[in-house]
Amino acid sequence: MVSKTEESQLQQLENQVENGGGGVWEYLSLVRKLKLRRSDKVLKHGLTLLNDPKKRSALGADEWTLYEQVAIAALDCQCLDVAKDCIKVLQKKFQDSKRVGRLEAMLLEAKGSWAEAEKAYSSLLEDNPLDQVISMRRVAMAKARGDILAAIDWLNKYLEIFMADHDAWRELAEIYVSLQMYKQAAFCYEELILSQPMIPLHHLAYADVLYTIGGIENLQTAKKYYASTIELTGGKNVRALFGVCLCTSAIGQLTKGRNNEDKEISGLAAKALEKDYKQNSPEKLDLLASTLKTLKL
């Protein structure tokens, strides 16, 4: 979960680090805490920390966490040599550790030797069949090989055991959306809303899916979820505001204007949009006005 304050804090730290202002470790910790994918920056700045013996030893035990973080970032950037070196260091320190074993398997994965990676994961799973991260890696590997259906299979099996893992539910929802299986995706988003009702982005994604499915009832529900997103964000989510407008327009087309109760909410949303555009990008105000006009609001 990245809140608004954390986002601005990250932005500031990122600028500072990019301009050589120090605070590299704080930045890397924040990236790790917020679970963000900033592989190129983590690789570049993490390596400068690791290559400086003085700074590295100042980290104490956190040094190994940093090695792991940099290794994964290097894999993501296809700098396999760096990743290999990092993993070697970790291996020397933690012999027969599962976590390092996982990193090695990930290295195989990044190289594209799927069969070997699969073998490595299976042997790791044999020792501990309920290892969540390795089960997730298997899903990811199926996805990476382009075998989306197998990924769905694995993910469903995984979710049968770990039903409370909302990240997995989100992944499944995204896979379903990518395959245009909206009904299944909607189910996943319902699960997500149930488990984390205060996160507006789940409401928003659910509403998006319902709007895409279409039909008067779904549109009504989508409008309600857009409205709840607006409520949770205090009207600062532009997508939700547009969503309300689009929903009312679509409902109006389906009912041929018999439905008058929606006019009010869409009018309010349009007003909020206009205010937001006036404040943040006045040059696009005309574009907004013409868009709203075509929606007949």
């Binding site: 979960m1 990245v2 809140s3 608004k4 986002e7 679970k35 989100r170 600062k236």
Partner: peptide, 8 residues
């Protein structure tokens, strides 16, 4: 206010 979800 959550503005973005963590990358999976």
């Amino acid at each position: 206010r959550v503005v973005s979800l963590p990358a999976n």
